[in-house]
């Protein structure tokens, strides 16, 4: 059984066609878990530098560090 963090990373590297995800998308990976527990898993991944936040100012999403075209803005 892969760890919770591995499950999140597996989901993110799977063929979703997207690079940024709503918090609720991660809750679907763990249907039996409380939202706050899922948040702890994501927070750990952010603190490890594996995930990063994307924010429009009004909405926030999570993605793999460096994934998607946003990185290009900074280069």
């Amino acid at each position: 059984m892969p760890s919770e963090k591995e499950q999140v990373l597996e989901f993110l590297t799977g063929k979703t066609g997207k690079s940024k995800f709503y918090f609720s998308d991660f809750c679907k990976i763990f249907p039996d878990k409380k939202q706050r527990e899922v948040k702890k898993v994501l927070t750990e991944l952010v603190n490890e530098g594996k995930l990063e936040f994307w924010s429009s100012g009004s909405t926030t999403m999570y993605g793999m560090t460096g994934a998607g075209k946003q990185k290009a803005e900074e280069d």
């Binding site: 952010v46 936040f53 994307w54 946003q70 990185k71 803005e73 900074e74």
Partner: peptide
């Protein structure tokens, strides 16, 4: 919108 922020903060 973007990935900018300070480390560990989502807002």
């Amino acid at each position: 919108g973007g990935i900018v922020g300070v480390f560990g903060y989502g807002g």
